[in-house]
Write a protein that binds this DNA or RNA. Structure first.
Lengths: 119, 119, 119, 119
DNA sequence: GTGGTCTAGACCACC
DNA sequence: GTGGTCTAGACCACG
């Protein structure tokens, strides 16, 4: 199972970032567990080390991993990470509700239609 | 009230498109009403006519306006436009719900937090 | 029943030309019958006399009408007009068949699908 | 074999689009094969990169190619593309048949004449 | 006057 | 290197 979808319009580094964010949030990677090295991950994904580096930098900026010079990158412990993600989702939801309200669209109709999605 | 936000990462033509989509959906622009001319809107927004042109082309492609060569662009009447927008919102909502489910986040907690938003 | 569709992408003079071509071919206008004057037709269609003039010029060029200076425009007799139209249709059909053949599409499948059209 | 015909009334970008649509449909370009870069094709056709860009954008919108930022444009595999093209041809055919019927022209005569075309 | 197309050349993000 | 966006300015067809 590869991570990168080259047809995806989003930049590759963003796809990598997103991928590891969910892996960490879902608990597939445990706190203080070592991340794959930049070079090995780049090799595995057949992409440029610079791209992986950029993804790791972003993950660190968002608090998902921390770096130890000369050692590597590690998953940062994170009960608060899930909490933050919940907040992000809530904000996205609120934005949708606001947009619907602006247009005079009944929110219950949106929820109804969302339930019918086939995926 | 200006339309363009240069700090916004999104391209200018997309901001214009989005702006007029909501104006039309909200009924601020009535069916068959004339849109500002490409040149005049470009002048007003201090941007390039080509940029406005691209925005109008996108609006036409999505069925929000229609073009008459030598005359101008006009709002296309559209009860089905609101219906389509509802569908778009439903899909966005469904994506959020799916993401929450993937992470084991209780959707009701997201809804709860969304209700507390101050904006 | 008006003739002009302002939402149509085609120029107005072309729509007028097309309209009268079919009227003449269908026999709604008889040979040597007088066409409406440029001015009156322009008035009726709420369009520019120049536009009607251009349409009439095109109709004359294609042999559908003839002009008598100071008198007006008249439908030209035309058993050969239908013949010519048949030829035009045949050429269009042949072009479609050629395109299908180039792509390796079975023509019978096209005919089959055409029969299912709802209009 | 050049692609652009400057005597053609159709815009250049449309000619390019059409050209590559047929190349892809005919299988001359294989799925995931790389398209010529925007700049190189512009150079080759002695036209402007923006023009090629517009053509590629249209090809992407119609599902014939996909874009990878920083990499290039690639042919998208597509068995459904031929199916769609068949449908397009069927609609064109149906339009011709309808026009003939409107004028009281016997369709079999059109088919007969089409068969005699020398090209 | 209007929109549609094209050219020339620039800057950006990404890889 | 790639594509994506934007600017400046031109020409055309249409009305």
């Amino acid at each position: 199972m590869s991570v990168i979808d080259y047809r995806d319009a989003r930049p590759i580094y963003e796809q990598i970032t997103e991928r590891y964010k969910t892996l960490i949030l879902k608990g597939a990677l445990l706190p203080d567990e070592q991340m794959p090295s930049v070079r090995s991950l780049a090799m595995e994904l057949a992409t440029n080390p610079n791209t992986v580096q950029k993804a790791y930098a972003e993950l660190e900026r968002q608090g998902f991993i921390y770096t130890v010079r000369g050692r590597g990158n590690f998953v940062s412990g994170g009960s608060q990470l899930l909490e933050q993600k919940t907040k992000e989702l809530a904000e996205s939801l609120h934005a949708l509700q606001k947009e619907a309200a602006d247009l005079g669209i009944d929110w219950s109709r949106v929820e109804e239609k969302a339930g019918e999605c086939h995926d």
